[in-house]
């Protein structure tokens, strides 16, 4: 009893982390001359994926219950467009619009959650409707690309940089200037979301109910858990975190377009799956999902650093990785059954 044996889920998590490390280290070796070893490259991966990290946290929570949410990309697009048009054309202050984005996310999640939890409609269908609605609303607000230029607050937040403490990873560039690696505020927001989600999933009644509901809905009900409420809350949580993700996203891109975050829901799902979350529910962990995001980000970054490869390659590699992890999960599942 003292010695904790690893179960298959933690093995999968270790594999995901190991894969990331191998991928990153080989990138460092292969592209050392192109500066891949710099800490800033890693931080930029975080920067470019800050929104996705928030989304994947919510997605993981929903997937643990056995559900799915394909509306997240569209929701981001809608909220970004709302903010951009609000600031630029309606002349509203960003300080009021930012919290309003979170409220929109909450309401959006509550409607979806009500249909899924209390009316027991398939999550796929409900969130597909949500996706069409949000994408449609984005275009209703504006069909143009709206760049955010008028808001001082937004510009400030977007360009706000935090240097690494103690100048870790600092280097001097060709002009002899000292460069200290830095992160933007939205990277910090995303990491806070990640930590909070981790704690919620692991240490709260709600978090544990998610796992129980995903493991066996009937059992969870018989053990006295409120299954409907749990699923409702999971979807509210997902849409809310997605809205935080939307803020990160818009701070990074500083614009709203109808094609914003197109296919982001699939990136989130694939990251979660690579990170060891089962589509069938009951198993998952935001740490894994986080590394799933990092793996996808590293692939993109490697292709970009290479400079010659087509930008379509990351998709192909992601597909292969997905297959690899799904097959692995299936093997583990079968192995466990035999036990």
């Amino acid at each position: 009893m003292k010695k904790k044996r690893m179960n298959s889920n933690s093995i999968l998590l270790m594999l995901t982390i190991a894969l990331f490390v191998v991928m990153y280290v080989s990138g460092c070796i292969a592209y050392a001359d192109k500066g891949f070893t710099k800490l800033q490259v890693f931080l930029d991966i975080l920067k470019n994926n800050a929104g996705l990290i928030c989304v994947v946290c919510g997605m993981t929570a929903v997937m643990i219950t056995g559900g799915i949410d394909i509306s997240v990309g569209a929701l981001i697009a809608m909220e970004c467009m709302f903010l951009a048009v609000g600031v630029e054309q309606w002349g509203l202050p960003a300080v009021a619009l930012l919290p309003l984005m979170l409220v929109i996310g909450l309401v959006f999640g509550m409607v979806q959650g009500y249909f899924i939890g209390y009316l027991e409609i398939q999550p796929f269908i409900v969130t597909m409707a949500g996706m069409f609605f949000a994408r449609g609303m984005t275009a209703v607000i504006s069909t143009q690309q709206v760049s955010i230029t008028k808001s001082e607050l937004m510009t400030k937040l977007s360009t706000m940089k935090f240097n690494m403490p103690f100048a870790i990873g600092a280097y001097t560039n060709k002009k002899g200037k000292l460069m200290i690696p830095n992160v933007s505020i939205y990277v910090i927001i995303a990491l806070l979301v990640l930590v909070a989600t981790f704690l919620i999933l692991r240490y709260t009644k709600f978090g544990r109910s998610l796992y129980a509901v995903g493991g066996n809905q009937q059992s969870a009900a018989l053990m006295g858990l409120d299954v409907k409420k749990t699923r409702f809350k999971a979807h509210v949580m997902c849409s809310f975190l997605t809205s935080i993700g939307a803020i990160c996203y818009v701070l990074n891109t500083m614009c709203g377009t109808t094609r914003q975050a197109l296919g982001l829901e699939m990136d989130a799902i694939s990251s979660a799956v690579i990170g060891g979350t089962l589509l069938t529910g009951g198993v998952g962990n935001v740490i894994g999902s986080f590394f799933g995001v990092l793996i996808n980000g590293t692939i993109s970054s490697l292709v970009k650093t290479n400079g010659k490869l087509s930008s379509a390659w990351p998709n192909v590699v992601t597909a292969i990785l997905l297959c690899f992890f799904i097959v692995l999960q299936a093997i583990f599942a079968r192995f466990r059954k035999k036990d």
Binding site: R208, Y211, A212, G215, M223
Partner: peptide
């Protein structure tokens, strides 16, 4: 009627 994916304690 228990959840197979959770620990015994849970």
């Amino acid at each position: 009627n228990l959840c197979p994916n959770l620990s015994v304690a849970e």
